[in-house]
Design a protein around this nucleic acid. Structure first.
Lengths: 111, 111
DNA sequence: GACATACGCAACCGTTTGGTTGCATACTTG
DNA sequence: CAAGTATGCAACCAAACGGTTGCGTATGTC
């Protein structure tokens, strides 16, 4: 069962988990306290996130600390790049359009 | 059944559809020709994409042209922003570290 | 008007998902 | 070593997903 980042971020609970551990590593129990679901449900989400390599874990005694693999987020950014190009070019087009309208207005004043 | 952009891009076929219609509007039939699945399956994906407002459609005679709602892609970009901040700050930290190492090396040469 | 084409919708089906409960395992502490 | 704590794993379940087939409907063409 090969999963990817896009499947990892598809679930709102998983996005919340990602946001939680983005700044500091946390244990499953600590994470589960932030949600209404059971610890096992959170554990399952963590397993999926680990499979997608969105999350890294490190054992410390009997606790396991989960932290975000920020590079995986970059993967989404790279995918978005192609669309960023589109909306930026459209913005430029809008910009040119506005400039043209301004120019037109100016000429109309000179009549 | 309320869906969001993240669910829209979770499926690889849907990402492919998005990529296809990003630059020019296309009909369901034309889109389906690019895939191994049936026209109806593509139609279902288009319906989901429309529900998420990732896609816009316009009737022209008996054909319906689907095009990308690029602003929805921006939504992903905005969500990513918080993580971009993290990896950029980490990059800066790495930058400082490298500068320090260089400085150290320089001093060692002066011994 | 008859026929072909483009499309959406509904019903159905096997698989995946997200959740639960129960249990096994490993570390910690008395 | 016994008790308690942190966690993963397996079994189960209802709902959603992604696909198919069949059919209805609207537009275009002869």
């Amino acid at each position: 069962m090969k999963r990817d980042v896009f499947q990892a971020i598809a679930d709102p609970t998983r996005r919340a988990i990602i946001a939680l551990i983005a700044l500091q590593a946390m244990t499953p129990n600590a994470i589960a306290e932030h949600f209404d679901t059971s610890r096992q449900a959170v554990s399952k989400h963590l397993r999926i996130l680990a499979e997608c390599e969105v999350v890294r874990h490190e054992q410390q005694g009997r606790e396991i600390y989960y932290s975000l693999e920020i590079d995986k987020m970059k993967e989404i950014d790279e995918w978005l790049e192609q669309y960023r190009k589109i909306w930026e070019s459209r913005f430029e087009q809008l910009d040119t359009l506005l400039a043209e309208l301004k120019q037109q207005e100016k000429q109309e004043k000179n009549i």
